[in-house]
Design a protein around this nucleic acid. Structure first.
Length: 851
DNA sequence: AGCACGCCGACT
DNA sequence: GTCGGCGTGCTC
């Protein structure tokens, strides 16, 4: 039998299946989805089996056999392999990249060599005197004749060439295997006696002076369960040598057991029961439950205002799904994957929940992943990549805060978890629930078209190329939840025109109203949340005399100032330099280091409200593991008056004593050169406003802005999603942006500018030519359903990164245009015979940020 | 991506 | 004369 293997080489040229013979002893073990080690061009690499056939597409005589099978259970199932190939096709990336994204990093094996002294050499050495033998050779002998090549080279760096030569002439034999980057935690475990009768007899006859041993044995006979050595020793306040003594008599067994790291071990989650649903929740639940019972693959857009109780609906639909013995995946934006959120799922489903997020160590993540793969978990809660949770029978996929841009991966493979979810759900006949108070325009356009039949014809031409193409195909159903649980009103939102403040001589960053409102909360002992909406704003250096700013010498981007080390760092390439004392350009002393906005707000708060207790949450204060959780717990225990932060304070938090939400500057995100800036602003304001007054105490929101008449801000003030969408759709249609078309951004990069520009031009003209040949109308005003427009090449927003220049082309299209195919064709037309393009090309399908 | 093979300059 | 620079080309 022949295995088709995708080899772990991140290059387009090698991204195709290579055929390998399956050795006799591996027959029946090697499956689609298996991870194997294969010889490839003189070395051994990790690869994935994506197919098994009878006949090779290659000269059988030249076929090499698979060198090793790396796992007992294939890490990928055939449906995930199929999904990987869909991703690489849709997002124009290599299959290798898609496959790698699906497994935990711990399973990214690397080749590792073990060298042994050849047999005849061993004999020779016994005759020859060891005198004069090279140090490294005797070192191997001391190690029993075999050791890892890497370890040997580390010990004798100066003999590297000698060692290599020895391998070449056969003095040393080399064996290459793939080693995982994982450490399985082993725990010494004590097992109860096999032979109980014997043990009981021994217990009777134990010598009196071995009381502790007797105690150990009695304990084990009573509990009759394996127990960790450390726990046993602790419980009986004895030592491991005592336990060992019992084991040496053959009465107990001590073995090393593999132990899963459970990041939530020892934490008690209070079990919760399903809450009675409100009428609104019930209607939505019934709709989804019906689909679950029928095992249909349907997509639901759950549009529920903040505080409408979406999470309870999630929990109960998951319960329904589990009753059908099918598994559920819950995606949550990384930023709102808070302990609060985890607690709600753990509280309802206990150990059946596996949690996957970026704060886990690679070992912890691997253990949670295995819990899923081995069927010990039925529910996976996690960020973006949890969409690849290796379940066998998925019944339900929930995507909370569906509009969040963090569902789009910015690195290759640049997939959108929402679209992958829809595709994966279809493989499993599973339901998808997209939940949001502020659905993305793409999802909303795709969903409303199906529900409001009369508008269907109307929108089908205008928004036919929704970004959520798969949602479109499956026909998303809109499920509205317009009311808050308990009939609580939406908080009142006040807009403060900061221009008026300035006119009235208030130059502080706090308006009088916000100042007063904060004071009131302090007096009443209630809490406030302050949002500084500063996307992409970080600390930088500027000279106030000449305007000089510190730039990275390799990247054409401002350097970031790190206060702790007084170093300027580029966060694209890692370049670091000492922060200057005076301006390098004009020698002025007036060089200033601008701290994060939140730092300045914190200082101002301390000045205005002496004794105020502020928790500041931003990248500076939450990088440490667990710090996020720590701050939120503190705030929840009312150990602070104000929670001040960036985006991260806007999402999913629920504190009963928060009655004031202040937005310092609503418009900082409004004027970013991105076509989604209005949408992002509306979403953020709506989300943060939803933090107030979720319980008994009524909430108030104060939004400071310089653009009080902007529709994104006005509609957010009135919690009017429909009005926002209507206005925003007008703009999108007029400007020709999604959901009225789809976008692909192609970025080309190279060290040589002329070659780069030349290649860029060639790519654009080839694309135009191909589009023309396939008869697609090119005009932006075209009424036809097919349309394509190729823009550029132009310099990228970051024109140089890591000493490479960057240019980009944008493809806009709509209708049944296979832009991916055109693009792939164009790229292959300017590539060499092995498929390597003259410059580096990176493709972003459905980009989130255009900037 | 790596590694081998291969053809031209500065050294023992 | 050799060592070694990194330019193409291939990997089942």
């Amino acid at each position: 039998m022949i295995a088709k293997v995708i080899v772990d080489v991140p290059s387009r040229a090698t991204d195709r299946p290579f055929d390998y013979k399956i050795p006799q002893q591996m027959l029946g073990w090697v499956e689609v989805g298996s991870r194997v080690g294969v010889p490839f061009g003189g070395r051994v690499l990790q690869g994935f089996v994506i197919g098994i056939t009878e006949h090779a597409d290659f000269d059988v005589k030249k076929l090499k056999p698979i060198a090793e099978l790396l796992d007992h259970i294939p890490p990928l199932s055939p449906d995930l392999v199929e999904l990987a190939s869909w991703i690489s096709d849709k997002y124009c990336c290599t299959l290798t990249a898609s496959l790698q994204a699906m497994i935990p990093a711990a399973l990214k094996g690397k080749a590792d060599s073990v060298v042994s002294i050849a047999d005849d050499e061993v004999n020779e050495a016994s005759e020859d005197s060891l005198l004069g033998e090279e140090a490294w050779l005797s070192y191997i002998r001391q190690n029993g004749g075999t050791m890892r090549l890497a370890a040997l080279q580390e010990r004798f760096p100066e003999s590297a060439a000698d060692i290599k030569a020895a391998v070449k002439r056969g003095t040393l034999t080399e064996q290459v295997t793939i080693r995982d980057r994982l450490s399985v935690r082993k725990v010494l475990t004590v097992f109860p006696p096999d032979n109980e009768a014997l043990a009981l007899e021994a217990l009777q006859n134990y010598p009196a002076r071995a009381a502790k041993q007797q105690e150990v044995l009695r304990y084990m006979l009573e509990h009759r369960e394996p127990i960790a050595m450390t726990v046993l020793v602790e419980a009986l306040s004895t030592t491991s040598s005592t336990v060992r003594a019992v084991a040496d008599k053959g009465l107990l067994e001590i073995r090393e057991m593999e132990q899963s790291r459970d990041p939530y071990a020892g934490r008690d989650f209070k079990r919760t029961e399903p809450l009675p649903l409100t009428e609104g929740q019930q209607a939505v639940y019934a709709e989804i439950a019906e689909s679950l019972d029928a095992e249909q693959s349907r997509v639901f857009l759950l549009h529920g205002v903040t505080g409408s109780g979406k999470t309870e609906v999630y929990l109960q639909t998951i319960e329904r799904c589990l009753q059908h013995e099918r598994q559920a995946i819950v995606l949550v934006p990384e930023i709102s994957l808070t302990p609060q959120m985890v607690e709600r799922f753990k509280g309802r489903f206990g150990d059946l929940v596996a949690v996957l997020h970026s704060r886990l160590s690679s070992g912890e993540r691997y253990d949670e992943w295995r819990k899923i793969r081995e069927g010990r978990a039925q529910v996976a809660v996690g960020a973006r990549s949890a969409i690849f949770a290796p379940f066998e029978r998925i019944g339900l996929i929930i995507i909370d805060e569906e509009h969040e841009s963090s569902y789009k991966q910015e690195e290759t493979p640049k997939y959108h978890a929402r679209d992958v979810a829809v595709r994966r759900a279809r493989q499993h006949s599973a339901a998808v629930v997209l939940g949001s108070a502020t659905p993305s325009l793409e999802s909303f356009a795709a969903a409303s078209r199906v529900v409001s039949g009369s508008e269907a014809a109307n929108t089908s031409t205008s928004a036919s190329a929704s970004t959520s193409a798969s949602a479109k195909a499956s026909g998303a159903a809109l499920l509205p939840m317009p009311n808050r649980v308990g009939g609580r009103p939406m908080p009142k939102v006040h807009l403060i025109d900061m221009r008026d403040e300035l006119k009235n001589g208030n130059r502080s960053m706090f308006s009088r109203q916000l100042h007063e409102a904060l004071l009131e909360r302090l007096e009443r002992g209630e809490q406030s949340v302050l949002l500084l909406n500063r996307r992409g704003y970080s600390t930088f250096v500027m000279c106030r005399s000449c305007g000089y700013t510190a730039q990275c010498p390799h990247c054409d981007i401002s350097l970031t100032y790190h206060q702790k080390s007084r170093v300027l760092r580029c966060h694209y390439c890692g370049h670091a330099e000492q922060a200057p004392e005076k301006c390098p350009s004009c020698e002025s002393e007036h060089i200033r280091f601008f701290g994060t906005g939140t730092q300045r707000v914190e200082e101002e708060l301390a000045k205005l409200f002496p004794g105020i207790r502020v928790i500041r949450m931003d990248v500076d204060t939450t990088t440490e593991k667990g710090s996020h959780e720590k701050w939120l717990t503190m705030f929840g225990e009312r150990k602070a008056d104000v929670l001040l932060g960036t985006q991260m304070v806007a999402k999913g938090l629920d504190f009963p004593y928060v009655t004031l939400v202040g937005v310092i500057a609503a418009d900082t995100s409004l004027h970013l050169p991105d076509f989604r800036s209005a949408e992002k602003t509306f979403q953020l304001l709506t989300q943060v406003a939803g933090r107030a007054g979720r319980h008994q105490l009524p909430g108030e929101v104060i939004v400071q802005t310089y653009n009080p008449e902007h529709y994104a801000i006005v509609t957010a003030q009135h919690h009017d999603y429909a009005a926002f969408v209507q206005e925003e759709l007008k703009h999108r249609r007029f400007m020709g942006y999604p959901p009225f078309c789809r976008l692909i951004v192609v970025t080309l990069s190279d060290e040589q500018l002329p070659l780069l520009i030349q290649t860029g031009e060639k790519l654009a003209s080839t694309l135009r030519q191909l589009a023309y040949e396939s008869g697609i109308k090119g005009s932006i005003d075209s009424d036809g359903t097919r349309f394509i427009d190729i823009l550029g090449p132009v310099a990228s927003p970051i024109p140089r990164m890591k000493d490479r220049y960057r240019f980009q082309c944008m493809v806009k299209y709509r209708g049944n245009v296979n832009a991916n195919d055109l693009l792939k064709q164009a790229i292959s037309m300017l590539s060499g015979p092995q498929g390597q393009p003259p410059v580096q090309i990176s493709v972003d399908v459905d980009p989130q940020m255009i900037l």
